[in-house]
Design a protein around this nucleic acid. Structure first.
Lengths: 188, 188
DNA sequence: CGGGTGATGACAGATCCTGACATCAGGCGT
DNA sequence: ACGCCTGATGTCAGGATCTGTCATCACCCG
């Protein structure tokens, strides 16, 4: 495949994270990342549409999994319950082995507003996709959007807990707890 | 004050929105916006930290109003109720006169992912501020964050409705409806 | 009327990102 | 084994974003 070593995208992703952790995101140029794996800046931008995106590998698959899993949920459930089951079926993206890597990535994201912007857009995109699926299932507005957005809120809060130092519980477990907490907070 | 005409920031904001509507955001350079009001690109960047920000005037005041209004809510209420009242007290930012302008602005934002990113970050920032205030009031986690985020979800959905063509109801009215809908969706 | 203050202009430069064209490695058919 | 084709990469040029630095100008104040 490649001119030299294969897996250009993955090597760029790994190198980028390491460099961002060392010098910070802004202080690392796309050219430096590329050079550190023997490629050029131009090739970097062939693998990623922009510099931020090098930190968002797998987000397409995550979105697809989340959105598609809505289809597999049995009929007749309440909208939020549908979203909860979709979320639970995407926990494959958060195995224990990945927790340390996720913490490093979050360490970079959390101190850079530009990167947080991108993260929020990805989340919003997932929520929009889920909302659309719910509407296809016959859920009317605004219930569909509210359920989808609430589900992503639960996901975000759960993810944050999952990353806490010393936290051992799985995403599935934490998510279940957060859905309960949401019920208590909104509680009619 | 200014070298020539006063109100540089406001003139830049107005000119920017008009140009964005005409040619699109990407197709309009900061230099063109500045030139259209008799200023230079360098001065544009003295008024706004980046090109996107020219579309986010007032967001600081909005955030402050939202976050501070949490203080004015009587004690003893449920967290989500606190957020609902804070939201209701910030409806001054959405008078009927502003609806047309907001539609134009949204027309630009909605077709540009980079601008949506910024909008989402501003929302998240407001939610974070409200969450912090709730924690100061003694609301524990994760209830504080969940209530704050749910409140902003309601706001976003309500705002979207408020912008719909032909919509006549006020933000306060729509927000009330959306809080009820959220209760029904999460409904225990 | 002279000095101070704040906004602006002018200029250079780093970085991000894109388009266009050349080049190279490996697969594939003959 | 040979030559072609395809895809990834390299090279170069250039526009746009954003920043640092210093000069300039308008206005206010004493």
């Amino acid at each position: 495949m490649g001119r030299w070593e294969p897996g250009g995208s993955d090597r760029l992703r790994e190198a980028a994270l390491e460099l961002f952790l060392e010098r910070g995101y802004e202080q690392t140029t796309a050219a430096e990342i590329a050079q550190s794996v023997g490629l050029t800046e131009r090739t970097f931008y062939r693998h990623f549409p922009d510099k931020k995106e090098v930190l968002f590998g797998g987000s397409v698959e995550f979105r697809a999994t989340m959105v598609d899993s809505v289809l597999g949920v049995p009929e007749g459930l309440a909208p939020l319950e549908v979203v909860a089951r979709a979320l639970a079926s995407a926990t494959e993206f958060f195995p224990d082995e990945r927790r340390e890597w996720s913490r490093k990535r979050w360490q970079v994201l959390s101190v850079n507003p530009g990167l947080m912007e991108r993260e929020l857009l990805k989340m919003a995109d997932v929520a929009a996709g889920i909302g659309a699926r719910l509407r296809e299932r016959g859920v009317p507005e605004p219930a569909a959007t509210l359920a989808a957005e609430s589900g992503m809120t639960v996901f975000r809060v759960a993810f944050d807990v999952w990353l806490q130092p010393g936290e051992r519980r799985s995403m599935a477990e934490i998510e279940g707890e957060m859905f309960a907490a949401l019920g208590a907070v909104v509680g009619v």
